[in-house]
Write a protein that binds this DNA or RNA. Structure first.
Length: 684
DNA sequence: AGCCACTTCTG
DNA sequence: AGAAGTGGC
């Protein structure tokens, strides 16, 4: 129990005891100090949102309680520099080893590599592990050792690797605690007073914590999984796995998910249950996308802020904050979009299909910069996940070679009848439309006046007219795209000229700044409590898939009403007058950290290069991937090196957005040129 | 066989 | 949105 020769187990987004390789290694090595460091400022722009912090708080409490039954407890530190905190823990406990599990977001990649260097230099033996993925990103590549750039190829490879993902580890039976008497915990504060009321209702629907995650997994696999393929297209079906927040915080191991699901697959295959097999494949596909998001983040660490196919750099975004606000508040006039945005706003949850609907509406119809939307998702989603969300937004923005086509606009009206054929979802979230017959529920603007009247709807008054008509949106998008191609061509020509003259690339990526946080924060939805035709429901009645209630700010009616006057002169806003009070309050934006920071970061972001070195190698020289090597426990780890490596070429091309040797774009000329050619031939 | 309408899929 | 597939006649 005394100091010395103990190990630090640094827990981050791996808040579980089962199948936690870092924890297992620590326990195997003797006494441990389990540490969680809360240093959200390190995340820059991506300071976790309110609901995400709520989850984390409960997940940590849950983990701590369990660790206590095993013989230790969780040491918590409040910090703005994780590495200094680690050094402190080393000093106060005499630890000689550090174990942690890999993360793949760009900030962690850099920080963890530095942690490794700094701690190693202090004589601490550092080892890191794969706990988040079936295969490490550097294990999966094509025949030439290059990373895949399309999902299908990536996932095929994953499913046909010569070795299976590691079998899950059992939880330790007992843990020997190191002496932490001189290493006091800090009290971590995850929510401020104003957030408590909003958070109170979350606990009715969700149970954070690793053992609850395990239960959720079991429930899903023994229940809804078999119906997954049938039900996945319903907007409000309660048959998704609901595992994503658990997975985000590593409360459950994907490897365990994978193995359990595979067992079902074998079972159903033997029974000849085609639907079951199909369901498994689809579900595994969504696990695969999560894997792929880490893979992409690792191989392209800037993919959360830069489009992977560089042409989008020239897209003339409509930088219109009032559009942004209308989208957030669910007042676009398209019922499916609005219902989704109200649900997100009220519950922090959205079915995957609806995420695609609202985000593609955001990009393709409103022409708003995708990173704003991504940031809003980050701030409001319970399962906000940088890698997954970046992949998702790039997918719908048309910047992946295998994503949605750039010029495709999905019509929310048709999608409405596809995902919500009976209008139940819309009626749940847009009570002002509740009395509209299904025939018109997804396109009220076409409904005869008599029908609208009977339903108590006055378009433009208590429910908005479409913010942009779809035909107009199509025209605007075409125009924007042809502008984009022209700029791109001009820029390409300019760069070629400069190259000839021996000048470097001068085109800097100029990201669009986020709206000021303060603006977003004071941006409360005005409530016009029009009693006429209001479907009065108490927030308790609100039904969400698996969520009975919403993130309602119960204490806020006064505030909202108080804002009524100031909102009245917002001429553009067609505010629904009889919307349910419980969804009228926009969630607070996260802490007022410096949003502009990202913008600066973009330009100062280090060039990432990942060389695959031998284990914990001192020499960070670039070395080609160790393809056939299969090592897990700290075996093959990414070594961050400022020098060039085989992976570096992947990014350097992207910096100017126009492929040089082997940039992403260059490897997918068809997706670029095809569209480009088509566009130009139509417009020119 | 050949045509059309309808469904489903597309990360 | 558009391709590809299915099934009816």
């Amino acid at each position: 129990m005394s100091g010395g020769r103990c190990s630090i187990v640094w827990l981050r987004r791996d808040l579980r005891v089962e199948d936690n390789p870092a924890l297992a290694a620590g326990v195997r090595a003797g006494a441990i100090v389990a540490v969680f460091i809360w240093a959200p400022e390190e995340e820059g722009l991506y300071y976790p949102g309110r609901v995400s912090r709520w989850w984390l708080k409960h997940s940590l409490a849950h983990l701590d309680a369990f660790l206590r039954t095993l013989g230790t407890s969780l040491v918590t530190k409040r910090s703005n520099d994780s590495i200094s905190s680690l050094l402190e823990v080393v000093k106060s406990t005499g630890a000689t080893q550090l174990f942690f599990n890999h993360l793949y977001d760009p900030i962690s990649l850099v920080r963890d590599q530095r942690a490794k260097e700094v701690l190693t230099a202090q004589g601490v033996a550092v080892r890191s592990f794969n706990a988040d993925l079936l295969y490490e990103p550097w294990e999966v590549h094509d025949g030439e050792g290059r990373p895949f750039t399309t999902f299908a190829a990536f996932w095929d490879r994953c499913l046909s690797m010569s070795y299976d993902p590691e079998a899950p580890l059992l939880p330790p039976k007992r843990i020997i605690s190191a002496d932490v008497s001189r290493c006091p915990s800090d009290t971590l504060v995850f929510e401020d007073e104003s957030e408590k009321g909003s958070n109170a209702l979350l606990a009715r629907a969700w149970s954070p914590g690793w053992s609850n995650a395990d239960k959720a997994l079991t429930t899903f696999i023994n229940g809804p999984l078999i119906e997954y393929s049938k039900n996945r297209r319903k907007a409000d079906s309660a048959t998704t796995s609901f595992l994503s927040p658990h997975l985000h915080f590593g409360e459950v191991s994907v490897r365990k998910v994978f193995h359990l699901v595979r067992m079902k697959q074998v079972l159903w295959a033997n029974e000849g249950n085609k639907a079951g097999e199909e369901s498994v494949n689809l579900f595994l596909g969504s696990i695969g996308l999560r894997e792929y998001s880490r893979y992409m983040s690792f191989n392209h660490p800037q993919s959360h802020e830069r489009p992977l196919l560089g042409h989008l750099k020239y897209f003339p975004w409509v930088v219109d904050e009032s559009y942004f606000k209308i989208w957030r508040q669910g007042r676009t006039g398209y019922p499916l979009v609005d219902a989704g945005m109200r649900e997100l706003w009220a519950t922090g949850w959205l079915h995957d299909r609806i995420r695609v609907v609202v985000s593609s509406f955001f990009v393709k119809v409103l022409l708003l910069p995708w990173r704003w939307g991504m940031k809003y998702f980050w701030d409001t989603l319970l399962d906000a996940d940088l890698e997954s969300d970046a992949l998702g937004w790039q997918y719908i923005s048309g910047t992946l070679p295998d994503g949605r086509e750039l010029d495709r606009i999905d019509n929310p009206q048709f999608e409405g009848y596809k995902f919500d054929p009976n209008g139940e979802y819309v009626r749940r979230w847009l009570p002002e439309l509740a009395r509209l017959p299904t025939e018109w529920i997804h396109h009220p603007w076409n409904a005869p006046e008599s029908v609208l009247q009977a339903a108590g709807i006055e378009l433009g008054s208590n429910y908005p007219l479409p913010i942009v008509e779809i035909d107009a949106a199509k025209a605007r998008l075409q125009e924007a795209l042809s502008q984009m191609w022209q700029h791109e061509a001009a820029s390409r020509a300019a760069i070629e000229n400069e190259m000839e003259e021996g000048l470097g690339d001068s085109s800097e990526y100029a990201p669009i700044a986020f709206p000021e946080d303060t603006q977003m924060e004071t941006d409360h939805e005005p409530v016009r409590n029009n009693p006429v035709n209001t479907v009065t429901r108490r927030y308790e009645d609100q039904m969400v898939p698996s969520m009975t209630s919403s993130l309602v700010r119960v204490d806020d009616e006064e505030t909202s009403v108080g804002l009524r006057n100031s909102a009245a002169d917002d001429s553009r806003a067609e505010v629904p007058t009889n919307i349910n009070v419980n969804v009228t309050e926009e969630p607070r934006e996260p802490h007022g950290h410096d949003v502009m920071q990202t913008v600066r970061t973009i330009n100062t972001f280090p060039q990432f290069n990942f060389a695959m070195g031998p284990r914990d190698s001192e020499d960070s020289t670039a070395e080609s991937s160790s393809s056939s090597k299969r090592e897990r426990d700290g075996g093959v780890v990414p070594v961050w090196s400022p020098s060039s490596s085989n992976y570096s070429e992947q990014f350097t091309g992207e910096d100017n957005g126009i492929g040089t040797s082997s940039s992403y774009l260059q490897r997918h000329p068809q997706s670029h040129q095809l569209v480009n050619w088509r566009r130009l031939s139509q417009t020119g």
